[in-house]
Design a binder for these strands. Structure first.
Lengths: 177, 177
DNA sequence: TAATTATGTCAATATGGCTGACATAATTTT
DNA sequence: AAAATTATGTCAGCCATATTGACATAATTA
């Protein structure tokens, strides 16, 4: 382990490195690391983790989302979601409503309490983003949105649009339809 | 659980929502989700996980990094790093060299094999980034770098600079496009 | 009626984090 | 030189989040 080893083959940069954009890869890592640190601190006080945050976020953003849709968006399995969702329901942050058209479905909605928490978690992230936009002197916010969306797998971009992107209002044309 | 429950308090949008930038928050989530999916597939073939990726990435990028420095960058504990680092060393992707000045330190270096894997993992991510820049028609790459860096906690920005960015050819202030 | 679908749940497992405690060697302080 | 501190390693156990596979139930569709 800690033998007085000499590097068998310590490595230097090769020419191939030139083609790889390590700078942006690393910046994305650092930016996302700190971006998620904001809500983490809040979640800890509620006994929740990132998994709860993600579920609550999407349920809040897409009222009436079904369990299957949520699994697609999060890209996790039903079993992984189960515990987290149950905790959010048991503690009153999310409620389930039997699907109107298809009674097998469970539409998910954030309660008032859930909405408040989702907002509290989003606030520091939103602030961080806006401060960064200002600091970086980004004039073209739309360009950033285009870039981020282009980073998503083409076949999954529909998920991005499914949000109430037009604005945020959550209500729209009534969720209980 | 699946009682014929009626939402005790289904929630609608409040005015506060307007102030929160849910759109960008969500885009960052989706972008990062798919950004990390590229290397995940490769790692699985090696029996490694994301933790190995992160360690290998930074060791490759910052040859001679010490264990303490690595912990700071990854923001994890020594015990969390231990297993992963040991596996990378045991399988020949990383080597340790006793620190020249301070013999207690262990400088970390990627081996030729480690360098190759780090590159293989970075390639699809780099490609995704560049394709996205093109698709989004980003002319000002530097602006994106400024934004991402501004997203990092001020007190931790030094970590970003510590990379071989002075030369990380590829980037600089050039705009590849 | 039969097949399929949406959801829930049980059991087992893996990964990657964590804390606390302690050991060793090397450096720094006193 | 002795004492304190530092850098690293390691043991033991715990927790959160994810996985797969199997199976149950109710509702819809064929």
């Amino acid at each position: 382990m800690k033998s007085p080893m000499k590097p068998s083959q310590p490595q230097e940069a090769t020419q191939e490195d030139e083609a790889v954009d390590f700078a942006l890869i690393e910046l994305l890592f650092f930016a996302y690391r700190d971006f998620t640190s904001d809500p983490d601190a809040i979640l800890a006080r509620y006994g929740f983790g990132r998994a709860h945050h993600r579920v609550l976020h999407f349920v809040n953003r897409r009222p009436g989302l079904t369990v299957a849709e949520l699994l697609e968006v999060l890209r996790i399995t039903k079993q992984s979601l189960a515990r987290v969702l149950k905790q959010l329901i048991d503690t009153g942050y999310v409620v389930q409503v039997q699907g109107p058209r298809d009674r097998r479905q469970r539409e998910l909605y954030a309660t008032k309490k859930g909405h408040a928490l989702a907002l509290a978690l989003a606030l520091p992230q939103s602030r961080r983003i806006h401060t960064a936009l200002e600091e970086a002197g980004i004039e073209d916010r739309a360009a950033l949105e285009r870039f981020l969306k282009a980073m998503v797998n083409p076949e999954l971009r529909a998920q991005v649009d499914r949000s109430p992107s037009g604005g945020d209002r959550t209500s729209e044309r009534g969720k209980m339809e």
